[in-house]
Simulated assay, not measured.
Amino acid sequence: MEELVQAWVCAKCQHEQTRLLSPEVAAFKERSSWETTCPKCGHAEFQAMSWPRPTPTMDLFEEWAVDVNLSFIEQDEDLYMASADYVPFLEQFVTRRGIPEIKRATLLSALCAIIYENVSDANEPNDSEDESMDPKLGEHVLQFLKRNLYLFDEIDKDYLYGYIARDVLPRLGISLDEPT
């Protein structure tokens, strides 16, 4: 089993405490929050706290996908998941029935972020075009979403904004003004 160590550093005396977390606890910010006092000086505020992240697994992802009260990180969760490691999970859960709308929107947004980061536009190359681009990954995700356009009809379009609405949805042939 993966060993994950969380550290807490006291803001007053800089004493460091650590604890071991299971992947099931470390994966979600709601479970890994740590309210404690310093055993050395009794101060309750921390100067720094580490947040270990477990290797993604199907079980952790499934738990996240069905529970609207769980999150991997506090904000920009879609960007956190927008990596090749998560693509199998994203594809499986975005098409699964019974996934709450907010979770489906996050999954779609993560897939769109992968397209944005990895598929160059012949007319306007994006700013992130560099050695880290993976055109095969981007094209794979682009084709996956083109085969599953109905998914965009199942979420509130207000979830899709900024670079997704401007740069990714047109590549999929989607206009926010009309149903797909």
Rank of each mutant, 00 (worst) to 15 (best):
M1L: 06
E2S: 15
L4N: 08
V5A: 07
Q6F: 00
A7D: 08
A7E: 15
V9I: 15
A11H: 12
A11W: 07
C13D: 10
H15Q: 08
H15K: 11
H15G: 08
Q17R: 12
T18H: 06
R19D: 04
L21Y: 01
E24M: 06
A26Y: 04
E30I: 03
R31N: 13
T37W: 03
P39V: 11
K40T: 09
C41I: 09
C41F: 07
H43S: 08
H43W: 15
A44Y: 11
F46R: 15
A48Y: 07
M49L: 08
S50W: 05
S50C: 01
W51S: 11
W51V: 10
W51G: 04
T55K: 14
P56A: 14
T57F: 02
M58N: 14
M58K: 15
D59K: 14
D59S: 14
E62N: 10
W64G: 02
V66K: 11
D67C: 05
N69H: 13
N69I: 09
L70K: 09
S71K: 14
S71V: 11
S71Q: 14
F72R: 06
Q75P: 00
D76N: 12
D76M: 10
E77I: 13
D78T: 11
D78Y: 15
M81K: 12
A82K: 09
S83P: 10
Y86S: 08
V87C: 12
P88K: 06
F89N: 05
E91W: 05
Q92R: 14
Q92K: 15
V94K: 03
V94P: 03
T95P: 02
R96M: 13
G98Q: 01
G98H: 02
R104C: 01
A105V: 11
T106Y: 02
L107G: 08
L107M: 04
S109I: 02
Y116V: 04
N118C: 04
N118F: 01
A122C: 06
N123T: 02
N123E: 12
N126S: 05
S128F: 13
D130A: 14
E131S: 13
M133V: 09
M133I: 01
D134V: 09
D134M: 05
P135L: 07
P135M: 05
K136I: 10
L137F: 07
H140S: 13
V141S: 02
V141Y: 02
L142R: 09
Q143N: 06
L145M: 04
R147D: 00
L151K: 03
D153Y: 03
D153F: 01
E154Q: 01
I155N: 00
I155F: 00
D156N: 15
D156K: 15
D156H: 15
D158N: 12
Y159K: 08
G162Q: 07
I164L: 06
A165C: 06
A165F: 02
V168M: 04
P170D: 05
S175I: 00
S175M: 05
L176F: 05
D177H: 09
E178A: 12
E178D: 13
E178V: 14
T180W: 06
